[in-house]
Design a protein around this nucleic acid. Structure first.
Lengths: 184, 184
DNA sequence: TATATTAATGACCAGGGAGTCAGCAAGCGG
DNA sequence: CCGCTTGCTGACTCCCTGGTCATTAATATA
């Protein structure tokens, strides 16, 4: 994963992967048919455990929708943009279009589930009278877009302008809540 | 640009670029010292004219801050995610870390200027009593993050879930305005 | 200890691509 | 018409890397 993250798929040498793993190139070809196979396996093995941990982390709590957004969701949003997971985002963006089945897998196992989870929370907020109906109901992506943005920014522009990702996320959540909360 | 956009830097053959340009590989090496040189020139030549056009487009009008966001800014935000410019974003994300001087140039000529422009508009809104002070003043990135998000989404996940980018942008702007506008 | 089976190595090969360069073509000046 | 300059070509070289496979090491079995 480190190797692919640093150099991208095409520029990464299989031998380099082998070296970092402390094995010979030949061994990799005993376990993976091709370089592409290896790549896909690397991605999947990177994602799966983290995904499980995340689902566990967020869990099914009895929080209100706002508490959920200010709590577990904000925690997640603060953590991810500086975690190793951000390189995954860059890889998926860069290499995705060339590996459609990998994207399909990622879609099914990560993105669509995440989206569904967010929809559920928002729906709960609306039904419970906490939130107005608003654009985020139709476009839950609006809740996550700063997360992706921060992941990208920290990898591309950090040297030129270090982004306070925690502040960004807090600002984002408060901005959104301020817009959708039913005021009493 | 097409070639690099399709395959990424490493997987693009210089000969392929030459073929699409209708010249020989040798000629490219008369004008560009190396493949990397060629790549940087391609990016710069792609960005520059569009940037000029954009600046012209937005211009200095006498719109209120809200009118500006609902007008020229929203137009821009709707147009970009499905324009050829989106492949540029993918390329910068994918290849940026390997070409620091290209990122530096892009930062100076595009990103920092864009950010400054947004700050100016928000500042005007606040000073004119249209807007509250809010998180977007500290993090103007929050205004653009859905644009980047949409550019990425349309290139990676369109096959699985076609995103209504226009709707997303309209929703975003109304959400933000709803949050920061001073109500009368 | 001897033998069979499984795990792992790394030298090797074939294909491909970045970069070079001798030479061809086309305009230009006399 | 002829030399001269400039623009351009594509065959060639050399290196690199994905993938193979004969060989060796380690482990299990008898």
């Amino acid at each position: 994963m480190e190797a692919f993250a640093e150099n991208g798929y095409a520029a990464t040498r299989v031998e380099e992967v082998a070296k970092r793993a402390g094995v010979s190139k030949g061994l990799l070809y005993l376990y993976f048919k091709t370089k592409e196979d290896l790549f896909k396996a690397v991605i999947r093995n990177f994602v799966s455990p983290r995904l499980d941990a995340l689902i566990q982390d967020i869990g099914n709590s009895d929080l209100t929708a706002e508490e959920f957004l200010r709590g577990p969701f904000l925690d997640f949003a603060k953590k991810v943009p500086r975690s190793p997971a951000r390189v995954l985002a860059r890889l998926m963006i860069a290499e995705g279009p060339k590996h459609p089945d990998l994207v399909a897998w990622y879609w099914e196992n990560v993105v669509s589930k995440g989206m569904a989870a967010i929809r559920t929370v928002l729906e709960k907020g609306v039904r419970g009278g906490e939130f107005h109906r608003s654009a985020v109901d139709d476009f839950p992506q609006l809740l996550v877009s700063p997360v992706l943005f921060a992941m990208v920014w920290t990898q591309v522009f950090d040297a030129h302008d270090k982004l306070d990702t925690d502040g960004l996320m807090e600002g984002h959540i408060s901005l959104v809540l301020n817009s959708i909360k039913v005021d009493r």
